[in-house]
Simulated scan of single mutants.
Amino acid sequence: MPPTPPPGILEPFLAAADAAASTRPEVDAEIARELMAEAAGVLHDSLALDHLDGHDLAIVVGALADDLTAPDPGAAVRARAAAVPDGDPDLHDPEGVRGAYLVSVQVLGL
Protein backbone atom coordinates (compact mmCIF):
# COMPACT_ATOMS: atom_id res chain seq x y z
CA MET A 1 0.00 0.00 0.00
CA PRO A 2 1.45 3.41 -0.96
CA PRO A 3 2.12 5.89 1.84
CA THR A 4 -0.69 8.25 2.74
CA PRO A 5 -0.09 11.91 1.88
CA PRO A 6 0.33 14.17 4.89
CA PRO A 7 -2.85 15.76 6.30
CA GLY A 8 -1.92 19.17 4.88
CA ILE A 9 -2.28 17.70 1.41
CA LEU A 10 -4.89 14.99 1.92
CA GLU A 11 -7.46 16.86 4.01
CA PRO A 12 -8.15 19.72 1.56
CA PHE A 13 -8.62 17.17 -1.24
CA LEU A 14 -11.08 15.12 0.84
CA ALA A 15 -12.94 18.27 1.88
CA ALA A 16 -13.28 19.29 -1.78
CA ALA A 17 -14.62 15.82 -2.61
CA ASP A 18 -17.18 16.10 0.19
CA ALA A 19 -18.21 19.58 -0.97
CA ALA A 20 -18.63 18.41 -4.55
CA ALA A 21 -20.72 15.43 -3.45
CA SER A 22 -22.94 17.57 -1.23
CA THR A 23 -23.67 20.16 -3.91
CA ARG A 24 -23.83 17.95 -7.00
CA PRO A 25 -26.25 15.01 -6.76
CA GLU A 26 -24.56 13.17 -9.64
CA VAL A 27 -21.31 12.89 -7.62
CA ASP A 28 -20.89 9.74 -5.54
CA ALA A 29 -19.22 10.79 -2.26
CA GLU A 30 -17.23 7.60 -1.77
CA ILE A 31 -15.86 7.58 -5.30
CA ALA A 32 -15.09 11.31 -5.14
CA ARG A 33 -13.12 10.82 -1.90
CA GLU A 34 -11.26 7.87 -3.39
CA LEU A 35 -10.32 9.80 -6.53
CA MET A 36 -9.26 12.89 -4.61
CA ALA A 37 -7.18 10.80 -2.19
CA GLU A 38 -5.47 9.24 -5.19
CA ALA A 39 -4.79 12.67 -6.72
CA ALA A 40 -3.37 13.91 -3.41
CA GLY A 41 -1.15 10.83 -3.24
CA VAL A 42 0.11 11.25 -6.79
CA LEU A 43 0.95 14.91 -6.18
CA HIS A 44 2.65 14.09 -2.88
CA ASP A 45 4.75 11.36 -4.51
CA SER A 46 5.73 13.61 -7.42
CA LEU A 47 8.07 16.58 -7.30
CA ALA A 48 5.30 19.02 -8.24
CA LEU A 49 4.95 20.52 -4.76
CA ASP A 50 8.34 19.82 -3.18
CA HIS A 51 9.88 23.24 -3.83
CA LEU A 52 7.08 25.22 -2.14
CA ASP A 53 7.40 26.53 1.40
CA GLY A 54 4.60 25.77 3.87
CA HIS A 55 2.77 29.03 3.18
CA ASP A 56 2.65 28.64 -0.60
CA LEU A 57 2.03 24.89 -0.33
CA ALA A 58 -1.18 25.45 1.63
CA ILE A 59 -2.42 27.93 -0.97
CA VAL A 60 -1.58 25.66 -3.91
CA VAL A 61 -3.08 22.54 -2.31
CA GLY A 62 -6.32 24.35 -1.50
CA ALA A 63 -6.59 25.74 -5.00
CA LEU A 64 -5.80 22.41 -6.65
CA ALA A 65 -8.37 20.66 -4.49
CA ASP A 66 -11.02 23.16 -5.59
CA ASP A 67 -10.00 23.06 -9.23
CA LEU A 68 -10.00 19.27 -9.42
CA THR A 69 -13.74 19.27 -8.69
CA ALA A 70 -14.46 21.72 -11.54
CA PRO A 71 -16.22 20.45 -14.68
CA ASP A 72 -12.92 20.84 -16.57
CA PRO A 73 -10.13 20.46 -13.99
CA GLY A 74 -7.29 20.91 -16.47
CA ALA A 75 -8.68 24.19 -17.75
CA ALA A 76 -9.34 25.36 -14.19
CA VAL A 77 -5.76 24.69 -13.04
CA ARG A 78 -4.23 26.22 -16.19
CA ALA A 79 -6.40 29.33 -15.77
CA ARG A 80 -5.33 29.61 -12.14
CA ALA A 81 -1.67 29.33 -13.16
CA ALA A 82 -2.12 32.05 -15.78
CA ALA A 83 -3.77 34.32 -13.20
CA VAL A 84 -0.84 34.28 -10.75
CA PRO A 85 0.72 37.76 -10.96
CA ASP A 86 4.50 38.03 -10.80
CA GLY A 87 4.53 40.30 -7.78
CA ASP A 88 1.67 38.73 -5.82
CA PRO A 89 2.28 39.87 -2.22
CA ASP A 90 0.25 36.95 -0.87
CA LEU A 91 2.76 34.44 -2.24
CA HIS A 92 6.37 33.91 -1.23
CA ASP A 93 7.31 32.51 -4.66
CA PRO A 94 4.75 33.44 -7.35
CA GLU A 95 6.81 31.86 -10.12
CA GLY A 96 7.16 28.64 -8.12
CA VAL A 97 3.41 28.59 -7.45
CA ARG A 98 2.64 29.08 -11.14
CA GLY A 99 5.05 26.28 -11.98
CA ALA A 100 3.50 23.98 -9.37
CA TYR A 101 0.09 24.42 -10.96
CA LEU A 102 1.42 23.67 -14.43
CA VAL A 103 3.45 20.66 -13.32
CA SER A 104 0.41 19.36 -11.44
CA VAL A 105 -1.58 19.44 -14.68
CA GLN A 106 1.07 17.23 -16.25
CA VAL A 107 1.48 14.90 -13.27
CA LEU A 108 -2.27 14.33 -13.03
CA GLY A 109 -2.68 13.93 -16.78
CA LEU A 110 -5.12 16.79 -17.12
Score class of each variant (00 low, 15 high):
55 H>F: 10
1 M>C: 11
19 A>Y: 04
7 P>G: 10
18 D>L: 08
35 L>V: 12
74 G>T: 12
23 T>G: 15
61 V>S: 11
78 R>Q: 13
110 L>F: 13
48 A>W: 02
50 D>N: 11
22 S>H: 08
88 D>C: 12
96 G>W: 08
57 L>T: 01
27 V>H: 01
77 V>Q: 05
63 A>C: 14
77 V>Y: 06
103 V>Q: 07
76 A>Y: 11
35 L>F: 07
82 A>G: 13
102 L>P: 00
33 R>P: 11
100 A>C: 09
85 P>H: 12
86 D>H: 11
33 R>V: 10
9 I>L: 12
65 A>E: 02
40 A>N: 03
65 A>Y: 00
9 I>P: 02
43 L>G: 03
95 E>C: 01
17 A>F: 03
41 G>V: 00
27 V>Q: 05
84 V>M: 03
88 D>T: 06
54 G>L: 08
39 A>R: 15
66 D>C: 11
21 A>L: 02
73 P>C: 11
8 G>D: 13
28 D>C: 02
47 L>R: 10
86 D>Q: 13
69 T>R: 12
3 P>K: 08
51 H>V: 05
1 M>F: 08
47 L>G: 15
47 L>A: 11
7 P>T: 09
94 P>C: 01
75 A>W: 06
54 G>T: 13
14 L>H: 02
30 E>W: 01
26 E>L: 02
109 G>L: 02
15 A>C: 03
100 A>R: 01
92 H>T: 15
84 V>H: 00
47 L>S: 11
19 A>T: 13
33 R>W: 05
5 P>H: 10
8 G>Q: 12
51 H>T: 04
20 A>E: 12
78 R>H: 10
90 D>Q: 14
1 M>V: 11
53 D>W: 05
89 P>K: 07
29 A>H: 04
25 P>R: 01
